[in-house]
Design a protein around this nucleic acid. Structure first.
Lengths: 373, 373
DNA sequence: CGCATTGCCGAAACCGGTTTCGGGGTTTCT
DNA sequence: AGAAACCCCGAAACCGGTTTCGGCAATGCG
């Protein structure tokens, strides 16, 4: 009773209106209609508006597939997600996709997404998508400091927009959050609460953002007149487990930090784990700030102070930029930045203990640490 | 030096191999090659394998766009994500997409995704995608108990597969996790730890899964010989805030539950919040179990015990099912179920306090509760 | 007033495929 | 041996668009 009704009527009766329908209604040829709609100069203004009017009235919208075989443009944005990454795209993805598809569908475009297992895989897939006209260009999420995708797409002469600033970002079109500014803000926030020893746990340096955030941290220290202690900065930290290890290392110092700034919320999870294990009260014994505004931050207790990036807006901006670039690859580069919004949480507060008191506390509980390690 | 090299060579020199190339190489006509590849019966077996061999050797793969305009099939799976939902798709999305695109690209298909702001919007978008051949069929995520998309697609005679079991799931093709079994397991787990009063916080009943999970909870109680107390079951809980309210209500009972089972991890967040506010020790004063295996569960402390669904596998299965269905809409329905894997965490344990002791504890701290409400 | 432009549109080829139609060559049957 | 039935494949139309080419009419210019 369900799917076996009308077994052969694959072509729906409420069919799409084609360019032929439109041309017949107007008593023009397909070619003329096509040129009118595509802004060719050899069509009089009067017939042009007549065609456009009729097109709107009849609800005509060209079938992009048919266009693609002749023009080579399929009106679709490509997004290849690499799955092998340590920190999953999970949290930011949904909002990001929302922005992208919103921008795309506003102009009748679609989003083609694919996943890959490795870097080489990504390049192969992108070539394939371009070759088969499944994507006219690409959004590059999670740009690396030295990103092979950029070199590849330059070589292939394919349009793309970066989400993030790579090493050579001056030569690329990009959209990014000013995470370096956020990191400096975080330092200021902590310094104003009275923290003097503020540590930084950074992520893998092949990510473009890690350079920026690290620099932002250091800029913040300078701005607040705090000394930079290299021992307080641990980088190349990939996941919560490694962040936990880094945290233990920091807290084992003679003068441990009273606040820890993390490049991502995910890393902050590791800091939380250690704080819980050492029975440190987060927000007083130890202050923590993350970055990303991810759902994880909402799930932590106390709430992780973090910087929320509007990923939907980012997606929309990137989509619009890419469409413009596809339309004209020789247009000037587009570069845009937004500021992330600080979202306070219970994870920061005035330091309850001095650095020395904290050290004593940790030593007292070191037995637990050994057990956990 | 970057994008302005080779300004006009839009058609790459490493061009795609078309069916014409192939037919010329074989000294056959396009038509014959096409029929050979598409399994027409009027092609001799010898030439068929000759064509197929050559196609592989030359790396020919038909351009799906060109096929689409004649056949009406674009070889792409449609996925429309509704954004207005209370509980975002965020956590499960990335893995789910991975599975989908993996299944799709294995057969040269792609995934077209779109987002919508409302239910009506979703239907419009789906019709549009079908009409413009941007999707041959749809994966329906987060199926509702009485889902308008199902009725709509039936009416449109378009292929689809449900992720979840709706009211009439017997009549649909679906893939789903056996969440009712998981809920029963959860009850058993808690009962074996010594819990006798186990509450359930369920989500909005328009979701298909809430019926199943609720029934699973009750089945678990029966199986363990525990009484069902209607006061211990609160449904239609939409978000963590409402879950927090429900938790306070449960704990304010004369005989409060010593364990709370939540239909989703997100709801468990609200339970955690209240537990923290009331200074209840999670995993001893109060045991909590969620469902979904989301990253949030990893971010909570102690780790939320939950049931992890392999969303990648689900995506792959759904993709394969949909492709089969697009190829033959009259094929028999496909229905498949997997079990979620229990992932223990520190959030469960033997009840440290009896229900009565818990009640006293809560009363003592009720002042805080009032302040928070 | 005549000729060269220009503006505007129809006709037709084209893109990369699919599908229908028809016909030539074998085989089978009587 | 001749007719009927198959088995294959080429030829050509088609899908829904785009783009080139050429020609007709109206204009510009001397």
């Amino acid at each position: 009773m369900r799917s076996d009704v009308k077994p052969d009527r694959r072509s729906r009766d409420n069919a799409r209106v084609t360019i032929t329908d439109l041309s017949q209604a107007l008593s023009l040829t397909k070619g003329t209609v096509s040129r009118a709609l595509n802004g060719y100069p050899d069509i009089s203004e009067t017939t042009r508006i007549r065609v456009i009017r009729a097109a709107q009235a009849m609800g005509y919208r060209p079938m992009s597939q048919a266009q693609a075989i002749k023009t080579g443009r399929s009106c679709s944005l490509g997004l290849v997600i690499e799955l092998s990454e340590h920190d999953a795209h999970a949290p930011f993805l949904a909002e990001f996709l929302a922005g992208l598809t919103q921008a795309a569908s506003a102009e009748g475009w679609t989003l083609t997404i694919a996943t890959s297992e490795s870097e080489g895989d990504t390049l192969r897939i992108m070539r394939d998508l371009i070759l088969h006209r499944k994507a006219d260009g690409f959004i590059l999420p999670r740009v690396l400091w030295d990103d092979p995708r950029i070199a590849f797409l330059d070589r292939e002469n394919a349009p793309y927009i970066c989400y993030g600033r790579s090493k050579n970002h001056a030569d690329t079109s990009y959209f990014d959050a000013l995470s370096e500014k956020s990191m400096a803000e975080a330092v200021t926030w902590l310094a104003q609460l009275g923290h003097e020893r503020i540590a930084y746990i950074g992520s893998a340096s092949h990510y473009a953002y890690s350079h920026l955030r690290r620099d932002g941290y250091r800029a913040g220290l300078i701005q607040e007149g705090l000394d930079f202690d290299p021992a307080l900065m641990i980088e190349e930290v990939l996941d919560p487990e490694e962040a936990a290890k880094a945290t233990r290392q920091l807290l084992a110092m003679e003068q441990p930090p009273t606040a820890i700034l993390c490049a991502t919320d995910t890393l902050a999870r590791g800091v939380y784990d250690v704080a819980h294990a050492l029975d440190l009260k987060i927000g007083s014994d130890l202050s923590i700030i993350g970055y990303d505004g991810s759902p994880e931050a909402q799930a932590m207790w106390p709430r992780l102070a973090t910087f929320a990036v509007d990923n939907r807006k980012a997606g929309a901006a990137l989509g619009a930029m890419l469409m413009a670039r596809v339309r004209d690859l020789n247009a000037p580069l587009q570069q845009d930045l937004i500021a992330a919004e600080f979202r306070p949480g219970g994870s920061t507060g005035r330091p309850d203990k001095t650095s020395e008191e904290l050290a004593h506390h940790v030593i007292r509980l070191s037995a637990d640490t050994i057990r956990n390690d």
